[in-house]
């Protein structure tokens, strides 16, 4: 469903992403792990078509993000970092705007908005202005826009960052509910997320993939069997020890 082929990104002399390739199939929840500045967000921004790669490409449901960006973006749901939204709008107005951009109008748009409100557990704040909501609700509002069109591929950049434990629990439950039907990528630097929702994880550092496997396979890389030790060793190298 999602295929990433040798993506590279260079900003001036700095090579932020140094040739990343992987694929995600339906039913997989891929954890995209790495320390801050590892190139996670840059990679996601290239996959979603927000910034062009220096070389390489990605395809979503068979549509190349560079050659056919509109068709590729139509199959994609994206929750950017910090869950941005138009804060002066109410939750319903915001989701209706997204539905219209995604080609739903009239009753079809209303049905999509209602379904997204329900899935993201937002029905009780549907008429509230986004600016007046707590961070957890704002996160879920942005989550609702990402799943509104029932996309086959869902990409989320740090979806639980800054949330309290209860809010994290709700977001993870929502991800699990739809995991079987979609190919999902979650970028995070919170390792507990991997055990909580991921079926597979990539560890990325300095713009390269350092490890790729199921959570158990990654744990087996160190005698301690602890994911945080494996993560530290792979992302910091010897100088970090």
């Amino acid at each position: 469903m999602l295929k990433v082929d040798n993506l590279k990104k260079r900003f001036g002399d700095f090579e932020a992403v140094k040739g990343i390739s992987f694929a995600v199939e339906k039913g997989e929840v891929l954890g995209f792990l790495g320390p801050n500045g590892a190139g996670k967000s840059t990679t996601m921004r290239m996959i979603t078509g927000f910034i062009p790669p220096t070389s390489g490409t990605a395809s979503i449901c068979g549509h190349d993000i560079i050659k056919d960006p509109i068709a590729a973006k139509a199959c994609l749901g994206y929750l950017p970092e910090n869950a941005p939204s138009y804060r002066a709008m109410t939750v319903t107005e915001f989701l209706t705007f997204v539905a219209r951009i995604r080609g739903f109008h009239g009753k079809a748009a209303r049905a999509k908005v209602d379904a997204a409100l329900e899935k993201a557990r937002l029905t009780n704040v549907a008429r509230q202005t986004i600016d007046t909501l707590s961070k957890g609700y704002r996160q879920r509002t942005c989550f609702a826009q990402a799943i509104l069109h029932d996309p086959q591929v869902l990409i989320m950049d740090e979806p639980t960052d800054g949330l309290d434990p209860n809010q994290k629990f709700v977001v993870r439950e929502m991800i699990k509910e739809m995991a079987a039907e979609k190919a999902i990528i979650i970028s995070t630097h919170i390792l507990e997320e991997v055990d909580a929702v991921c079926t597979r994880a990539l560890i990325i550092a300095q713009g390269e993939i350092k490890a790729d496997g199921t959570p158990d396979e990654l744990r087996a890389k160190d005698p301690s069997g602890k994911l945080d030790v494996v993560f530290h060793n792979l992302t910091m190298g010897k100088e970090g020890n």
Partner: peptide, 14 residues
């Protein structure tokens, strides 16, 4: 400033 440009331009709109 709000980051909504990332939301808008990753939707199927040119």
């Amino acid at each position: 400033r709000n980051g909504t440009i990332e939301l808008l331009l990753t939707m199927p709109i040119t």
